[in-house]
Design a protein around this nucleic acid. Structure first.
Length: 110
DNA sequence: GATCTGACTATCT
DNA sequence: AAGATAGCCAGAT
């Protein structure tokens, strides 16, 4: 696996439970603020989906407007929404998370 | 090995 | 305001 992808996974794993981040935030966190597309690409190649701390919680990564990924690989956006709700993330409608409430303030390394 | 394309977003026209 | 373009990296063909 490329270093780029590993860095993406590391950043995604830093998203606190019950929070979400945009692709742009993740891209910024890994030092590639214009590489949001490849964040998504790396997640498409997701080695370990799930809610565990060790997994790569790609369901916490959403579009800048809070909508979910179109080609989600767990069983569709409905499954992603279910996982987010299970963590306490509120939805403004059935496919848009409440970014204002749950977007992480920062994803940068400590 | 060159080319194409893709879970995005900001910027330009 | 809406449509087009650029920018980034890696995997697939």
């Amino acid at each position: 696996m490329s270093e780029f992808s590993e860095t993406v996974y590391a950043a995604v794993r830093r998203i606190p439970r019950g929070c979400v981040a945009t692709y742009g935030q993740v891209a910024e966190a890994i030092g590639r603020p214009r590489a949001a597309r490849y964040v998504g690409f790396a997640l498409h190649n997701n080695p370990h989906p799930g809610m565990d701390e060790d997994a790569t919680p790609c369901h916490r990564v959403v579009f800048k407007d809070g909508s979910l990924a179109p080609g989600f690989g767990f069983g569709g956006p409905a499954a992603q929404r279910r996982m987010l709700e299970a963590e306490g993330v509120r939805f403004v409608d059935e496919s848009h998370v409440d970014l204002e409430k749950h977007r992480v303030s920062t994803l940068l390394e400590q």
